[in-house]
Design a protein around this nucleic acid. Structure first.
Length: 1036
RNA sequence: GGGUUCAUAGCUCAGUUGGUUAGAGCGCUUGCUUGACAUGCAAGAGGUCGUUAGUUCGAGUCUAAUUGGACCCACCA
């Protein structure tokens, strides 16, 4: 019943059919060029958010485009186990549901629950991606923690270790006290916070010899972490700081702890900051750790893994770090060691998962030695083996990669790939191997324990481009699809993932993982804020799909955004996209109706009124019900069906239809009655898109004729009716067998139709669009491709061409009609192909309803993407036709300025200045598109005499309309003045340029010639405008 | 501290390598239910392209400075 676009009725069904037909499958195929994209695996327990929607819409667009371009296009889907994120969620759920902690259930119990959780929610995001229309090869769906990926992870870990690229050591790591695990540098987010700088006196140990800074009983240090002073093992000063020069080498008594610590000189210290003296706490600060190493200082760790103070903190043991800080400061104050507290802002690291303040702590962890791995990864980007776009991300990447530090890959978690490292309980030997050894290779002992830790999630993600293709086995997939072509991802995981894939690919495969990275921006809310759960400003893409359809959502995310830029997203965007889908929908309806109309003209009056019901609607979800043709029933999906409502014109039925129709007409007269409109809509019959129906009323009524006029051929009057019983019937509605060639369209029967000016214009525009859209898509610039296709479909095909073909379609010349319809079909189908990668569902749904030409596949997704066809570019004709459009716009403008309402059809008088043949040929267009009545050509440049007129001046012709009493002299004068001023301004500009010797000397000839031509044109126009002003008895 | 990026119509944004009168969507004004579409059609208003200086015959586009916003990186206690 819906005459409007209603995606919920067909998207699911179409997707199921695509799956069923295995259109998404990709496999090594020597006859085709490979194309591969690896989906950034979303978290297995995650839900689709707008970022995913954007990212995957773009990938799908690219992969569909490449598929249509003839590539063996693989889009590899998968999910990520998201070690820390999932572990946190599972622990939370466990606590909420069962009141249990990880410690309560133990490793096995916890993993059981985590796998159960994965089983329960793991498919959710996949189903959500399907709703978006993603054409992934789902048969290959991978999970970063499934068996093949585990094999790849173990293989890489063992080889890294044996290559000396992996080591275990005590180093300062970023420790999250809430997650109780180490995390990598990339996982720390720095935030500027208001804090304090505590100045603390450390007494100098009296050695009995007061000299130099003899009065120095104390040295004052400034710190942001007073609680860590309990772990201090030195105080450092700058070697060239005169204030402290004589104290270097002396000993201090560490307050509260009463330990002796040395004063050391280290270049790291900035004498200008604070007091110029730094307390050194190697166990709790990365810089101090390094200083400690330089000066052989002991490392005293005073904190537990959970952020509480340990026994080394003496009296403060057991306190949390926050409580310890207060207690330490209070104690210092009480004992007179606190000098002052300054306000201070500093950067504090926070865990990117839980947000708690990161504690730098010395810990024994596994590290990937980055220096050697990074070098080729730097080179690959430098020499563009991997191209990052937009280009600015190359700088970011290179800066990071050149300064990268060793990567801490061990995590004190359970959910993840357990590290394949084992320790002999007897001799302590460390063994790294593919499987747990039965006995220690060193001492033969059997008490072998596996490392309890798991690997960083990103360790397995880094292998994604090849682990998904079967690595470490040498599979045909790996040989065929690797390196992949493009990675599409948001720029916020450039370090986490992109950079690590590059060096992992180079290390493990000897080749980069992808040739190109197309970064997307972030989807923000209308105010420009990141969408987040805590802010509650997120938009649920699934709700948008429910309401507007997946195509609308995709289009709204892709259209008009520059690659890599953030976007502000509000629901209005989707509404606008939905309107566009509706527009295309209705363009297709127009096509179907136009055929109906064409057949109509060959019917008797009675038949015509019956057939009028078919001017109406497609039903997406419902089968044909009300259409008179419904009884015929047997439509074939694979073949275009020509339906003939007139075939079974039972008198009763006919009468009813006519009655309905006239009721509709009566309603129509009532302008304000919306309800009536709706009723009227119902009076119109229905097409079902799911069962393509092409109306052919003439089948039985037309006498078989031997002599074939174009029109008859077009109407299919001498053709067989196809149906399911006759599947091999090669009948195609013959107009669609027309081959478009230079200047004409020729049918199989050798009938020809000369392309109209409008045809040539739209075909030229179509090809221009094909060229531009393809260029953008080749560069993965879907946003710009969208804009180009949108402009073509709405601004040219719908706003102009469909209006332009109406005179031909409603005329009595069957040849004109058929030809126009053939061209319209051709352009419409090309438009669907152009748009398909962006809006796959609606294009498919419409495609199925359209008659097929030889070679047209049943699904638009398997059609070839349109290619630029020089034969169908009529540059000169199109440019001349643009002048006709200019004339039309001029007349419309004139009418609007004169307040001639659109339902008035004034007579038009045309004084043609050039291209008269063309203008005469285009007269039907001009009349229709300017809502004019009769149109006459006149010979007098001053317009028709005897009555008052108003004129619009254009390059081709001047058009007059009677204005008589309508005219408001003042308004008319103002209108003409405005045009005169406009012309004068342009002339001035042009002539200014032309008078400039530099311009003439340096500008390209074409540019100069264009300026000259323009100035001449405007001079003519100016003269005419002045003349018409004069005729009104007005002056400037 | 280093770096990147943005600034164009009331709002959100396009604007390829410098070259017609700087575009679109939404919003606004006016007219219109016109045989595809009121989820629409037609017409219109609205911009000295953040500021300044430069390069150039010519700058929204290139250069430098400047103002304001966003982001990234970095060990300043």
């Amino acid at each position: 019943m819906e005459k409007n676009y209603g995606p919920s009725g067909f998207e699911g069904k179409i997707y199921a059919e695509w799956l069923d037909k295995k259109y998404f499958r990709a496999a090594p195929n020597p006859d085709k060029k490979p194309f591969a994209i690896m989906m950034p695996p979303p978290n297995v327990t995650g839900q689709l958010h707008m970022g995913h929607a954007l990212n995957n819409a773009l990938q799908d667009c690219i992969v569909r485009y490449k598929r249509m371009r003839g590539f063996e296009a693989l889009w590899m889907p998968g999910t990520d186990h998201a070690s820390i994120a999932t572990e946190v969620k599972v622990a939370e759920k466990m606590r909420a549901d069962e009141g249990l902690t990880k410690a309560d259930v133990g490793r096995e119990g916890f993993l059981e629950r985590a796998w159960a959780w994965t089983a329960q929610y793991g498919g959710r995001i996949v189903e959500q991606l399907k709703r978006l229309g993603c054409s992934c090869d789902w048969d290959r769906l991978a999970f970063t923690m499934d068996a093949p990926r585990a094999k790849a992870v173990t293989d890489v870990f063992v080889r890294l270790y044996r290559d000396g690229r992996l080591y275990k050591g005590d180093r300062i790591v970023n420790w999250c006290v809430a997650c109780k695990t180490a995390i990598s540098d990339a996982e720390v987010e720095y935030e500027t916070r208001q804090s304090s700088l505590w100045h603390i006196k450390y007494p100098v140990k009296n050695d009995g010899r007061g000299q130099g800074a003899e009065k120095a009983e104390y040295i004052t240090v400034a710190t942001t972490r007073p609680e860590t002073m309990l772990g201090d093992t030195a105080v450092a000063v700058s070697p060239d700081d005169k204030r402290y020069r004589d104290l270097i080498g002396k000993t201090l008594i560490l307050p509260l702890a009463n330990r002796e610590i040395p004063i050391v000189a280290d270049a790291y210290v900035d004498k200008a900051f604070g007091t110029g003296a730094v307390k050194v706490t190697p166990a709790h600060d990365p810089n101090d750790f390094e200083m400690g190493a330089r000066h052989n200082l002991p490392v005293i760790r005073v904190m537990n893994d959970d952020g509480t103070m340990n026994e080394r903190a003496g009296a403060f043991a057991g306190l949390t770090r926050e409580a310890a800080r207060e207690a330490v400061v209070a104690a210092l104050k009480e004992r007179g060691f606190l000098v002052k507290i300054q306000k201070h802002t500093h950067n504090a690291g926070h865990c990117y998962r839980c947000g708690s303040v990161i504690e730098p702590i010395v810990s024994r962890q596994w590290f990937v030695r980055m220096k050697e791995l990074a070098a080729p990864a730097v080179k690959a980007v430098e020499d563009k083996t991997v191209k990052l776009t937009p280009k600015r991300f190359e700088k970011i990447y290179l800066h990071w990669m050149r300064n990268v530090k060793d990567w801490c890959v061990s995590r004190q978690l359970w959910w993840g790939h357990r590290i394949p490292a084992y320790t002999c309980g007897e001799c302590g030997e460390l063994i790294v191997d593919y499987a747990k050894p039965d006995t220690c290779p060193k001492c033969g002992g059997a008490a072998i324990e596996q490392d309890p830790d798991v690997l960083d999630t990103w360790f397995s993600s880094a292998l994604w481009p090849f682990s998904t293709l079967g690595f470490p086995d040498k599979t045909p997939e790996l040989a065929y699809f690797y390196p992949t072509d493009v990675l599409v991802t948001a720029y916020d995981i450039i370090f986490f993932w992109v950079a690590r894939m590059v060096f992992s690919g180079l290390y493990n495969m000897g080749e980069v993982p992808f040739k190109r990275v197309a970064f997307t921006g972030l989807v923000r809310d209308v105010q420009g804020r990141k969408m987040s759960k805590s802010l509650g400003n997120g938009i649920d893409p699934l709700e948008l799909i429910d309401k507007y359809g997946a195509d609308s959502l995709r289009f709204s995310l892709l259209n008009g955004t520059a690659a890599g830029g953030d976007m502000r997203f509000g629901p209005e965007r989707v509404v606008s996209a939905r309107n566009f889908m509706n527009k295309i929908w209705n363009a297709a309806r127009f096509f179907h109706n136009a055929q109906c109309t064409m057949h109509n003209s060959q019917l008797s009056v009675g038949e015509r009124s019956d057939n009028a019901e078919c001017n109406g609607h497609f039903s997406l979800s419902e089968p044909v019900t009300d259409c008179p043709s419904k009884e015929r029933g047997h439509f074939s999906l694979s073949q275009p069906v020509i339906d003939c409502p007139s075939k079974e014109n039972s008198p009763a039925k006919k009468e009813k239809s006519v009655g309905e129709q006239s009721a509709g007409k009566a309603c129509r007269a009532d302008k304000d009655n919306a309800e009536c409109r709706m009723q009227n809509a119902e009076c119109n019959g229905h097409f079902s898109l799911s069962q393509p129906v092409i109306d052919c009323p003439s089948k039985e009524n037309s006498p078989a004729k031997k002599e074939k006029s174009v029109g008859e051929v077009l109407s299919g009057s001498n053709s067989q009716m196809p149906n399911e019983k006759d599947p091999d019937n090669a009948f195609q509605f013959s107009i669609f067998n027309f081959q478009l060639s230079d200047k004409e369209c020729r049918s199989e029967q050798n009938e020809t139709y000369k392309l109209s000016p409008a045809d040539k214009w739209i075909l030229t525009r179509l090809n221009d669009t094909v060229k531009r859209a393809s260029a953008f898509l080749d560069n993965y610039d879907a946003g710009l491709a969208c804009a180009v296709i949108y402009d073509f479909i709405w601004g040219e095909l719908c706003d102009w061409y469909i209006e332009l073909v109406k005179p031909a379609l409603y005329s009595d010349d069957a040849g004109e009609k058929g030809g126009a319809l053939a061209v319209l079909a051709r352009v419409l189908k090309s438009a669907l192909k152009l748009l398909h990668p962006i809006a796959p569902f609606v294009t498919e749904e419409i495609w199925r309803s359209l008659p097929k030409a030889p070679g047209d596949p049943e699904s638009v997704m398997t059609a070839a993407y349109p290619e630029y066809d020089k034969k169908l570019v009529f540059r000169g004709d199109a440019e001349r036709f643009d002048k006709v459009r200019e004339l039309i716009r001029g007349v419309r403008n004139l009418r609007a300025e004169l307040n001639v309402p659109q339902n008035k059809r004034p007579r038009l008088f045309i004084f043609c200045k050039k291209e008269e043949k063309l203008v005469r040929r285009c007269l039907p267009y001009i009349r229709t598109l300017t809502f004019s009545g009769e149109a006459d050509f006149i010979a007098d440049a001053a317009g028709p005499q005897g009555r008052r007129t108003s004129v619009c001046v254009s390059d081709l012709a001047d058009a007059y309309i009677y204005t008589d009493e309508l005219i408001d002299l003042e308004k008319e004068s103002a209108r003409l003045q405005k045009e005169i001023e406009n012309a004068e301004r342009e002339i001035k500009r042009c002539e200014g340029k032309l008078a400039d010797k530099g311009f003439i000397a340096n500008a390209p000839k074409a540019v100069a010639a264009a300026e000259k031509e323009k100035s001449e044109r405007y001079r003519v126009r100016l003269a005419e405008l002045r003349a018409s002003l004069a005729r009104l008895g007005l002056r400037e």
